[in-house]
């Protein structure tokens, strides 16, 4: 991958004291754009104070951490290859093991609607946990397929699995699946994020494609769904198609950013089918993205994930914080 280096500008800076291995997930705190949780393959979960650019807390799992989330500004939950769900109290700096899965925990989300934690695992299930005590509230089979991605907004909970299935749940009533769908994309599902307005979700695949889908099954609404190509680079007559690893929504404007293994971040206006902007190319694949709650900052994690398996000098793992403008994120 040839990379053009762009000087850091005022609008963007790199975090200091970064994890020593690839970054799997980053999440901004729910009510401030000061704190950022970072899960990494170096087995650590770190909390950064973005405004001061320092690492505030760090705790470890036994094996790489794949996802992390906030409950409120002082509690974080994380899970990973060690199959264990941990809660960490950031004030008391104490950790509690909430329970485990039979496979690696790929996704961890907080369901504010029911005050519970949801974990999705490669064991083919989603579990719901009481967010305060080690108590698994329920286990929900996802078609016996490994959970690759999930997203929750309000009561709408969408799970994407290894077999390109999509399960739409209502967290208030986990007794049955609301909708069972097949991904409209031909290739492996990489990431799903629900629109902040709960109308639909955005789904990305490893084949440089993103689909915008609507939850309402009314045929009139379903007509609006579409998919588009992105994160592709023409290189000497060959078009390289990259996985779209990350999606993050701007909570105010319902626009979203996508990050691909090509190292680009694009911001899209899904309702108007417009690309709002593209940032400069980052030093390596974008592995995770997170908008702050007010959409003023976008955290961009850059880590190579062995997409090509041939790149020898391993690019540095970095996290950039970019303060975005309305021009970049607001529908025109």
């Amino acid at each position: 991958m040839t990379v053009t280096r762009v000087a850091e500008s005022r609008t963007e800076f790199k975090l200091k004291s970064l994890p020593e291995d690839a970054i799997s997930s980053i999440k901004f705190a729910p009510k401030s754009n000061q704190f950022l949780l970072v899960a990494s393959w170096d087995c650590s979960v770190r909390l950064y104070d973005v405004s001061a650019n320092i690492e505030r807390h760090k705790y470890n799992h036994e094996l790489p951490v794949l996802d992390v989330c906030f409950r409120d500004s002082v509690h974080s939950y994380s899970g990973g290859v060690d199959q264990t769900l941990k809660m960490f109290d950031l004030n008391a700096t104490s950790e509690t093991v909430l329970g485990d899965h039979k496979g690696a925990i790929r996704c961890v989300e907080f369901a504010s609607e029911v005050n519970a934690i949801l974990t999705g695992s490669w064991d083919g299930t989603v579990k719901m946990w009481d967010s305060r005590v080690p108590n698994c509230v329920g286990t929900y089979n996802q078609g016996n397929e490994r959970v690759y991605t999930m997203s929750i907004v309000g009561e709408k909970f969408v799970v994407g699995t290894s077999g390109r299935k999509i399960f739409v749940w209502d967290v208030r009533n986990m007794g049955h699946v609301n909708q069972r769908r097949e991904s409209s994309l031909k290739y492996q599902t990489r990431c799903i994020r629900v629109f902040p307005n709960k109308q639909g979700y955005v789904l990305s695949s490893i084949e440089g494609r993103v689909a915008v889908e609507y939850l309402d099954s009314n045929p009139e609404v379903q007509k609006k769904k579409y998919a588009f190509k992105c994160h592709r680079i023409k290189d000497g007559g060959i078009e390289k198609i990259y996985p779209v690893n990350a999606i993050s929504f701007h909570s105010v404007y319902n626009t979203f950013a996508t990050g691909g293994s090509d190292g680009y971040v694009n911001i899209w206006d899904g309702f108007n089918k417009k690309r709002l902007c593209q940032f400069h190319r980052y030093n390596t694949a974008v592995s995770s993205l997170s908008f702050s709650h007010d959409g003023s900052a976008l955290a961009i994690a850059c880590s190579q994930l062995d997409e090509t398996q041939i790149e020898d000098p391993k690019p540095e793992d970095t996290i950039y914080i970019r303060y975005v403008t309305d021009q970049e994120t607001k529908p025109k």
């Binding site: 490669w122 290894s162 990489r190 084949e207 198609i241 996985p243 994930l305 062995d306 090509t308 398996q309």
Partner: peptide, 21 residues
């Protein structure tokens, strides 16, 4: 997608994380 393109992903249809793990 055709001869002129290449998906930058390992040949196996398993998520990058699983391969890495």
């Amino acid at each position: 997608t055709g001869a002129g393109s290449k998906i930058v992903h390992p040949p196996e249809d398993v998520s990058l994380e699983e391969i890495r793990a």
